[in-house]
Design a protein around this nucleic acid. Structure first.
Lengths: 131, 131
DNA sequence: CTTGACCTTGCCATGATGGGAAGCCCTATG
DNA sequence: CATAGGGCTTCCCATCATGGCAAGGTCAAG
């Protein structure tokens, strides 16, 4: 299986597969005589694992740990759960920060009549700071 | 006022002030004979404006537009309001995406007993995909 | 044998920010 | 007056994960 096919099968772009290889997240794929990377079903599984972990917002660095746990048959599920909780916490704090921005903006937008006149509490707030 | 003082007064780091100048977000500051940038109160105001807009999550590119509207005395507040609404929408969609990640993870974490045994629905999900 | 699709590597760009180095400048203190 | 320390300058590098492009090799089908 060539890299393009592996990309289609795993949902990870060929570019990213090469990148993951370059940073050591996945082992270097064997090559054909012409230098083409060759993938088998188990590699596809790993790539899909990575893809799904990325979809859950895990940074690549954490995925390394997740993969190590996955490979470790004597792992403790508590370790996996802790990683998940950490990720949940990270997401929560980002969400909270953005929620705060959104609410501040909503307040301002609500106060702005949004017509043809120049007066605008949004700009006033930006220029003089929150009251 | 030197750049360090301007940074302290505006809450924008000296590094960022130079960056904003380099990308044309703020006009080039006048220099002393020795080449030091010099800032006056009105520049500080602009920098503070930028700082607050960044705090509300506006990307620098949008701030350029906000600054233009601010300077334009014949602006329509509706234009400002539209930018604010766009930013609210952008924040909302990012929040929604992260919220979805968080909920998916919470489901998984809830199903993981988190003990010394290796069995873990989180890893199972990553490897075989959401059911 | 040609054509088109695919692969390779390598470089550049993103966005906003920080770090650091090399070197110049200013001020205060001894 | 000399020197030390802190501030300024520019320039380069790194982040994080991803995409794009270009030059060149490869493979398969017609």
């Amino acid at each position: 299986m060539n890299i393009g096919e592996a990309a289609r099968a795993s949902g990870v772009s060929a570019k990213m597969i090469r990148y993951y290889e370059s940073i050591g997240l996945v082992p270097a794929a064997p090559r054909t005589g012409a230098g083409y990377r060759v993938y088998s079903a188990s590699e596809i599984q790993v790539l899909r694992f990575i893809r799904r972990a990325r979809d859950l917002g895990f940074p690549v660095e954490r995925i390394e740990t997740l993969l190590a746990l996955w490979r470790d048959r004597s792992r403790h599920s508590s370790d996996v759960k802790r990683l998940a909780r950490d990720q949940i916490d990270a997401l929560e704090s980002k969400i909270a920060a953005m929620q705060a921005m959104k609410e501040a903006l909503e307040h301002l937008a609500q106060a702005c009549c949004g017509d043809d006149r120049p007066d605008c509490p949004i700009l006033s707030d930006l220029v003089q700071g929150p009251v």
